[in-house]
Design a protein around this nucleic acid. Structure first.
Length: 324
DNA sequence: TTCCGACAGTGGGGTCGCAAT
DNA sequence: ATTGCGACCCCACTATCGGAA
């Protein structure tokens, strides 16, 4: 009988382990998690939430079938869409494929998808999740799956390569960070484990607080998120997104008090914000400056994965330039 | 009839705060 | 004191459906 498809093991966030002895490290791929099962001539994919996604990636399934050579396998990895120019995975590109149930051949040709296999969970129908990561990686290498749209990524001994060096290399290659994995750890299906630690590369910027969005539940009395803005290269104050995380409850209350004093009826921005913001925002005078941490700027100039770090008092709003 | 906007669904993610350990 | 998990948030993209053009 087929093994039930496990939910993937998840990494907790944090700095790379120190001391680094007994840990491996690899690059973090910006894509969508994919558990795959090869059984006879059938290949199927499941997402992080165990929703089947096979039909979205028919060409990847075909490629995986060719390299699997009739072995019964359960694999864990990441589906990515590389930038044709640099090879670095671009999440936005993958999104053009992710939700398309029956992609046309034109779409498949336009947006190449690759499967990065970084773990093996079962061989010949037998679970290997109770083997160590080091042992599973050895098994994975023996399977010789690389080829076509299938890649088996390298991993390093963290103590030998050094976290700082690998992070710098990740940044250089346009990757989203690194993942450290304890070499003797077992596969903890469905759990966010401290034996896998993801260290994303993040940037910081300053942003003008232009308003706030109402909150729900515990945040109904304060705010849901802050509307952020910055000056573009022409000096216009434009919305760069909203931040709704990173505040303690006491910071939320204090900020809401300060925002009440600054209320104004109209937007302080020089250009309209995105529709959803325009519809619900409560505007304030543009005088407060927030420290923001984020992953990257989207194509539309909106910060992705923002979190609030604090209020800056040593700057004036004219100094707040476009995030880099 | 065609086009567009709003909305839901699914993917990715970050934190806080409290209960359980 | 630490850890796990639920409850809040964030952005982007596609699919869908109803109403406007």
């Amino acid at each position: 009988m087929a093994l039930p498809v496990p939910a993937p093991m998840l990494a907790s966030a944090g700095r790379p382990p120190d001391p680094p002895g007994g840990w491996s490290a690899e690059l973090k791929w910006d894509g969508a998690r994919g558990i795959s099962r090869i059984q006879g001539s059938e290949v199927r994919f499941w997402s992080r939430n165990r929703r089947e996604s096979t039909s979205a990636y028919p060409e990847v399934a075909a490629s995986l079938l060719r390299v699997s050579a009739d072995r019964d396998l359960l694999l864990d990895g990441e589906l990515i869409a590389p930038d044709p120019a640099t090879g670095a995975p671009i999440f936005g590109r993958l999104q053009r494929r992710m939700h398309v149930i029956r992609p046309t051949t034109a779409l498949i040709a336009a947006v190449r998808v690759e499967y990065i296999v970084f773990d093996v969970l079962a061989v010949s129908g037998e679970s290997v999740m109770d083997q160590t990561y080091l042992a599973r990686r050895a098994l994975l290498d023996d399977l010789e799956l690389a080829g076509g749209l299938i890649r088996v990524p390298p991993f390093w001994n963290l103590a030998e390569i050094g976290a700082d060096r690998l992070l710098a290399a990740a940044s250089e290659a346009g990757m989203e960070g690194i993942i450290s994995k304890k070499l003797d750890s077992l596969y903890e299906a469905g759990r966010r484990s401290s034996r896998w630690i993801k260290t994303p590369l993040r940037r910081t910027t300053e942003a003008v607080i232009a308003g706030w969005m109402p909150g729900n539940g515990a945040n109904a009395a304060t705010f849901g998120s802050l509307v952020l803005a910055a000056h573009d290269d022409k000096g216009s104050l434009r919305c760069i997104g909203c931040v709704g995380t990173g505040f303690s409850m006491s910071a939320r209350r204090a900020l809401r008090g300060a925002l009440n004093e600054l209320t104004r009826p109209t937007s302080p921005l020089d250009a309209p914000a995105p529709t959803t913001v325009e519809q619900s925002a409560r505007w304030v005078d543009a005088v407060l400056i927030a420290d923001i941490e984020y992953r990257e700027l989207s194509a539309a100039g909106i910060i992705r994965h923002p979190s609030f770090r604090g209020i800056r008092t040593d700057r004036t709003i004219t100094e707040v330039g476009w995030p880099k």
